[in-house]
Design a protein around this nucleic acid. Structure first.
Length: 421
RNA sequence: GGAGAGAUGGCCGAGCGGUUUAAGGCGGCGGUCUUGAAAACCGUUGAUGCUUAAAACAUCCGGGGGUUCGAAUCCCUCUCUCUCCGCCA
């Protein structure tokens, strides 16, 4: 949520910023609702004050006639208060629901662009592999070598589910361990194993709800939601909490399965393991002061890239423009790996600075010192990394001509004596 | 799943219809004393909204609703926690 004061005090500026996102946001309606809310609030406070005063007078009054006269007066006041409060509640409800659907403001350095064509490739890392044969796709190799079972995945669960087998199942497991080990041993993240199901407030807190319920799984009986990313449980750990400044930055690395309906992507990326309803991910989450958020974003990106460097996977860093920013992000960089088989750049990480957007929704604050006022923290996160697409890039980059997969050196400690899968 | 108990400011804890504008303690902060520290003593110390700021005012005793002139206090309901029993990887 953005600060309503910005709309109150700098309405035209907010409108201009929203234009950069190429979305329409009812800023004027919000402004007017806020105005009427404050007016009503003031009126109703005055009436409450009257009631309070009268009630106290009744308590100390002896004369029965005066008492009943004052009681009448309070009753009348209450009737007005009731009407006003109903109106106030309706306005607040409307205002709140509009505010929850207002996207974050783009950061000052974010390039303006309408959609992903406005993104800029910031830089490239690690050489593309050279093949003296035509590299196969991961799904060809997976099926041919009986390492991925797409048919039975669909049989037991449905479309967009697959089964990893043998060496590939182990490769994924070793990658999860490898990523967590690197982040906790070398990048100073604290490991978290969170629940994979959360209550509704968490999804509102990190911004998936109310706008994106279409993409989420929910258990109707309990009202619990399946996490679409570890960002949700890990950030919400600190809902309604106030940090002492010396506890910041908080740096967490968490593995979870992630569950997404992918309805908006129906028909897209249906081949292979690129986009499933369930996938594994190691997520990096940071909670910082506003002034350090920017440099913490840079180091978070570097931490995610370090995984790819250690695996020697060609990748590039893409700066996301205003029109392609996610709803909650003020600034975002994607890391994309190259997969020579399907010949695509694949997003394996989205690293975002949310500023105070999530903190305001989830009510996460910090104090600069004991006596100062609590301020909203900045939250950041990025994948470190998403497993299926790293798997694709390893399968396709490390393939041999006869369909085997060479195990990257960095992962050798997680295997026995094997050299190939 | 069954039975019972409970949820009050950073923490502990009193309050059970009207000087609660929430007692008292701990912790925090400031001061006195001291060479310094501790102890002791004195003072101070919640959040949110409105406000340029402060003051004032209002709201907040787990959430929501109700009774009443008046609710932390009574009633209903939901959520969560604890204890005992049952079931269980």
């Amino acid at each position: 949520m953005i600060d309503i004061k910005l709309i109150r005090e700098q309405r035209e500026y907010v409108k201009k910023e929203m234009e950069k996102l190429f979305v329409s946001v009812p800023i004027d309606e919000i402004f007017e609702l806020d105005e009427s809310k404050r007016k009503l609030l003031y009126d109703s406070e005055c009436l409450r004050n009257t009631r309070k005063t009268l009630s106290k007078e009744i308590a100390s009054e002896k004369d029965a006639e005066i008492i009943s006269a004052k009681k009448e007066e309070v009753k009348k006041t209450n009737e007005i208060i009731k009407i006003q409060e109903e109106e106030l509640n309706a306005i607040e409800e409307r205002l709140n629901s509009l505010m929850l659907n207002v996207p974050n403001l783009p950061g000052p350095d974010v390039p303006v662009g309408k959609d992903e064509t406005g993104n800029t490739a910031v830089s490239y890392f690690n050489e593309k592999k050279k093949f003296d044969f035509e590299p196969k796709t991961h799904y060809e190799i997976g099926e041919k070598r009986d390492l991925i079972d797409f048919e039975r995945g669909v049989k037991i669960s449905g479309t967009r589910f697959y089964i990893l087998k043998k060496g590939l199942a182990k490769l994924q497991r070793s990658l999860i361990n490898f990523m967590l080990d690197i982040h906790t041993n070398f990048h100073d993240y604290e490991e978290i194993y969170p629940p994979f199901m959360v209550n509704e407030g968490c999804l509102v807190g990190t911004g998936q709800l109310p706008k994106f319920s279409d993409n989420l799984y929910k258990d109707l009986e309990s009202g619990m939601w399946f996490v679409p990313t570890a960002e949700v449980p890990v950030t919400n750990m600190y809902r309604d909490e106030v940090f002492a400044i010396d506890r910041l930055p908080v740096k967490h690395a968490a593995y979870t399965a992630c569950f997404r309906k992918e309805r908006l992507s129906a028909g897209k990326d249906t081949k292979g393991i690129k986009r499933g309803h369930q996938f594994d991910k190691v997520e990096l989450v940071k909670i910082t002061t506003p002034e350090t958020a920017k440099e913490e974003l840079s180091s978070l990106i570097a931490d995610a890239q370090d995984i790819l460097n250690r695996l020697d996977i060609p990748h590039r860093l893409v700066r996301i423009c205003t029109g392609d920013l996610s709803f909650t992000a003020s600034e975002k960089f994607d890391i994309e790996v190259f997969a020579p088989g399907i010949n695509e750049w694949l997003e394996v990480s989205s690293c975002s600075n949310f500023g105070s957007f999530q903190a305001r929704r989830a009510n996460i604050k910090f104090k600069r010192d004991k006596n100062s006022k609590a301020e909203f923290v900045s939250t950041l996160n990025g994948s470190g990394l998403a497993l299926p697409r790293v798997m694709i890039s390893i399968i396709e980059n490390y393939q041999t001509e006869d369909g085997y997969i060479k195990i990257p050196d960095a992962l050798k400690p997680y295997f026995a004596t094997e050299e190939f899968i």
